[in-house]
Simulated assay, not measured.
Amino acid sequence: MKPAPADLPHWPYPRWIAHRGAGQLAPENTLAAFRLGAQHGYRMFECDAKLSADGVLFLLHDDTLERTTSGQGLGGALPWAALSRLDAGGWHSRTHAGEPPATLDAVARHCLANRFDLNIEIKPSPGLAYVTGEAVGREALRLWAGASGAPPLLSSFEPEALAGARQTAPALPRGLLLETLCEGWLDTALGLGCVAVICDHEHWTAEAMARARQAGLRTLAYTVNEPADVARLEAWGIDGIITDAVDRLSPV
């Protein structure tokens, strides 16, 4: 049985969220992935944002470039002019060879033009958590200024990054990302003024989800790719499901 809701904040987002654009069907964190996810009916997307050496926010999950681009070394150590010339699609398939990296600006404009919602994970380079959070908050305010839809949900595994986002964009919703429900997780989320907790789906329990809801927090889970896991989480009252399986799990 789903727990009775407490006085939860308004939640304008769809339940289904495409992980890094289209999960694994297209090169992650590229506009190609966003377009493919939309073709499968998804209307909300998750992406990873970090700072280039010259202060441009761009999409990259890893600290280093090797796995998902033709570059080498720390992504944040290069200026955007160099990053923009990399191939961010060839590692995935010949179909996507030559796909460029994406800036947060480009992804935001794509989402706004298509009325998509966005979860921006703040993914700072080592030692840059607070300043990256500040930059994401500042840029999100600029990009969504005057927009009629839902604001972006800002999330991070690093409390310092969320604190930075809170400093520059206190009104934007924030979510604490967790690998496990470690001791003090609820107090940390509340202390950062978060509206949601986003945890690895394997570590959510009915009791933990009920605690979050009683505290006024929404609950999301990643990376949920199997129908049995979806059913379990939905029975407990999950608010958001982040998935790679955009071709197998329908958001309708």
Score class of each variant (00 low, 15 high):
126 P>R: 15
244 D>I: 06
238 I>S: 03
88 A>D: 07
244 D>Q: 13
2 K>Q: 15
110 H>R: 10
19 H>A: 04
213 R>I: 10
11 W>S: 08
222 Y>L: 07
97 A>S: 11
57 L>N: 00
183 E>W: 00
29 N>Q: 10
204 W>F: 14
153 L>Y: 01
173 P>F: 02
105 D>F: 06
234 E>T: 12
175 G>I: 00
236 W>K: 11
99 E>S: 10
64 T>E: 14
208 A>H: 12
109 R>S: 12
105 D>V: 09
251 P>E: 01
219 T>K: 06
19 H>F: 03
34 F>I: 07
134 E>N: 11
169 A>R: 03
202 E>N: 10
186 L>G: 10
137 G>A: 02
8 L>S: 08
223 T>M: 05
157 F>M: 06
217 L>R: 09
196 A>H: 05
68 T>Y: 01
199 C>R: 00
11 W>A: 06
79 P>C: 00
106 A>W: 04
249 L>R: 07
179 E>V: 12
59 L>G: 01
87 D>K: 08
101 P>D: 05
201 H>Q: 03
108 A>S: 12
209 M>F: 00
40 H>T: 12
163 A>R: 11
51 L>S: 11
181 L>T: 01
86 L>D: 02
190 L>P: 02
159 P>T: 03
151 P>V: 07
192 L>H: 00
40 H>F: 15
140 A>G: 03
104 L>Y: 08
140 A>T: 10
186 L>V: 04
109 R>M: 10
144 W>Y: 08
176 L>Q: 00
245 A>E: 12
24 Q>V: 14
148 S>V: 05
218 R>G: 01
134 E>P: 15
240 G>P: 06
191 G>M: 02
86 L>H: 03
138 R>Y: 10
236 W>D: 04
144 W>Q: 05
130 Y>Q: 15
68 T>P: 09
159 P>M: 07
25 L>C: 06
125 S>D: 03
164 G>I: 02
207 E>C: 04
207 E>K: 11
66 E>I: 06
252 V>D: 12
154 L>P: 03
